[in-house]
Each structure stands twice: as structure tokens, then as C-alpha cells.
């Protein structure tokens, strides 16, 4: 049984009512076919109304849905012969990130993704999908290995953020993330990053410096969680719903801001309702991206990747200068 989200309650209620009527018409000797039909039509309309007009906070709820497919759910649906490789070779193996090699559509690839748990036990093992530095260093090790063997890299982003802990700081959480951004920018093989759930801050970006960045329709990608933003802005974490709107964190928002390449449409109601179908949509976009990226040589790849990030951001030039500096700006832009 799929756990229902708050905004879905009208749908659930109506669905239950239809079920009841069906049961009655079966047991008792009354014909309710017409009523059931009317209600089913209304249900269809209600679903369209609700799912086609999701508010940012609704999407946050879907992105965090306990049953939402994770990296390890997608791997068998997208790849053959996946073998997981462990460890950063310096400190340990961080299970908040999974990584390995596999075959995709006849192509050898490296797959890396954040891994959260679906229940408490698994979440403790996976540290709720919040990596320590060794997780990022394992990811980087696998990326460099992929580069050596000329394998494209696919990254799945699904984390609330890098883990905020004492040990993480001691072992250089900042350096680990920064190094990934730096090295990913120079990888000689195609990199495709897909946000499949929550994309939380630097901890998400550390798998996100790709030639293509996609987001599942109901995933989020942000500089800070809605709760964190609310606490900072209004000193009140319960204003998260409002922050989710203000911070512009949904896939359509990021598409408008020019940060991502494309939105991958989701199964109605969210990826958790049919992960097989969802994987098909991801597969299609991966195939298309590889067709575009594989012909490029490494210099072009690196250059285009840099230009892609270089153009992100909005700014302007003040009309007049405070202290009459020579106009040297334009020639350096």
C-alpha cells in the first residue's frame, strides 16, 4: 500500500468511496453503475487537477516520499551487469553513496549515486543518504577510474545534503566537495547527472558537475532545505512551505532559471507509483544524451561543460561608476 500524501487526500477519499459503492452494488441487489461511472469520471478529473497543478511543497513531499525509487532501485532497471565497488582507499566505505560499473545499452559506464534508505534500519546504514568526505572521495576515485577506461559517468543525485557532523568536518567535508567540483570540471568523459529526489546544496552538487543535468519532474534542487531557509529567514522552521515557494527549488523553477537541461516527466502522482515506467523515461533521455555527447572529443566536452556553468547567474552593470574607473570591464567579459 502506497502511503498517501496530504494533498492527495481528496483523491484517496473519492477512490475509497468508489470502492465502497462497488462493494455495495456487489453485495446488495442495487445497480449503482451510473453513480460509479460518474464518480470515476470525477476521480479522473480530480487527479488531473491535483497532479497537474502541484505546488512546490507538494513536490517536496513527493521528492521525500519513503517509497520513491532510489539509486539502487533504478540501477537494475537501467543497467546490466552492475558491480558495486566500495571504499575511498583513504579512510572507509561510505554507504550513503553507491558506485560501480555496469553496461548500459551496449555501453560500458560508471554509475554513482547518493543512496538513502527506505526504512529506519536502512537509513541508519545509509546515514539518511548524507555522505561523509569518504563518500565523495569514493565517488571521485570511481570517476577517475572511469576516465582512465574512457567510460561515461552517470550520477544520481538524491540527498538532503552532505552530513553536518564533527567527524565530517575533521576529515575535510569542504575539501572533499570542492575537489569533486574541481575534478568533475576536468573529466575527459561524458558526465550525466540526474536529480532523482532531493538535491540538497553542496552535498548534491558534488555529483552534479555534468555535461547534462536533468531533474525528475518532482525532484528538488536547492542551496538550502526549505526548513533551513525558513529558520534563517523567518526564524521559524515551520514556514518551510512558504520557503519552498520563495526559494524556487522545483524542476520547473530550475528549468526557468536555466540551470538544468531538461525535466524528465514523472509517472502521474510520482515516480513511486511505477518505477519501471519511470526508468523507461530515464533510459530514453540517457540514450539521447549519449548520442549527443559520445561524438565529442575530450577538449570539446570539457570546454562545453565549463561554458555551461559559466553562463549560470544573473547580474548587470551599474549605470554610473562611483569613482570614475576606466571602462575595462567589457573587454574581459
Amino acid at each position: 500500500m502506497i502511503y498517501e500524501l496530504e494533498f492527495e487526500r481528496p483523491i484517496t477519499d473519492l477512490r475509497n468511496k468508489i470502492k465502497e459503492l462497488k462493494a455495495i452494488s456487489k453485495d446488495a441487489d442495487v445497480d449503482l453503475t451510473a453513480e460509479i461511472e460518474t464518480l470515476e469520471k470525477r476521480l479522473e478529473k480530480l487527479e488531473v487537477d491535483i497532479y497537474n497543478h502541484l505546488k512546490p511543497w507538494d513536490r517536496v513531499q513527493i521528492a521525500r516520499h519513503p517509497a520513491r525509487p532510489t539509486t539502487l532501485d533504478y540501477i537494475p532497471l537501467l543497467f546490466n551487469d552492475f558491480i558495486e565497488f566500495h571504499g575511498d582507499r583513504y579512510y572507509g566505505d561510505d554507504e550513503a553513496i553507491v558506485s560501480g560499473i555496469a553496461e548500459f545499452n551496449g555501453l560500458a559506464v560508471t554509475v554513482i549515486g547518493h543512496q538513502r534508505g527506505k526504512d529506519t534500519k536502512e537509513n541508519i546504514r545509509r546515514n539518511f543518504g548524507m555522505p561523509h568526505p569518504e563518500g565523495y572521495r569514493k565517488a571521485l576515485r570511481l570517476m577517475k577510474q572511469a576516465e582512465k577506461f574512457n567510460r561515461p559517468i552517470i550520477c544520481f543525485i538524491d540527498t538532503k545534503g552532505a552530513f553536518p557532523g564533527k567527524a565530517a568536518e575533521e576529515r575535510g567535508q569542504s575539501e572533499a566537495i570542492a575537489k569533486n567540483l574541481f575534478e568533475m570540471a576536468g573529466l575527459k568523459v561524458p558526465v550525466i547527472s540526474i536529480v532523482i529526489g532531493e538535491g540538497g546544496s553542496g552535498g548534491a552538487l558534488a555529483l552534479g558537475v555534468g555535461d547534462r543535468i536533468f531533474m525528475l519532474e518532482n525532484s528538488t534542487y536547492s542551496v538550502i532545505s526549505p526548513e533551513g531557509a525558513a529558520a534563517l529567514l523567518w526564524k521559524d522552521a515551520s514556514q518551510a512551505k512558504r520557503a519552498a515557494e520563495t526559494m524556487k527549488i522545483t524542476a520547473p523553477d530550475l528549468n526557468r532559471l536555466g540551470v538544468i537541461d531538461e525535466i524528465i516527466p514523472e509517472v502521474r502522482g510520482g515516480a513511486h507509483r511505477d518505477s519501471n515506467l519511470q526508468a523507461e523515461a530515464i533510459k530514453e533521455i540517457l540514450k539521447r544524451s549519449f548520442n549527443e555527447l559520445l561524438p565529442l572529443n575530450s577538449d570539446d566536452l570539457i570546454n562545453q561543460r565549463y561554458m555551461k556553468f559559466k553562463k549560470i547567474g544573473e547580474y548587470e552593470f551599474a549605470k554610473q561608476q562611483p569613482e570614475g574607473e576606466p571602462k575595462e570591464v567589457e573587454q574581459h567579459s
Partner: peptide, 14 residues
């Protein structure tokens, strides 16, 4: 500046 700020990390690092 939300996610645009986040992306400046990637831009400068690149």
C-alpha cells in the same frame, strides 16, 4: 539567489 548561488560553486571551481 537560491540555486544560482549554489551553481557559482561549480562555476568558480571549473
Amino acid at each position: 539567489e537560491g540555486v544560482l548561488s549554489l551553481m557559482q560553486m561549480a562555476k568558480t571551481s571549473a
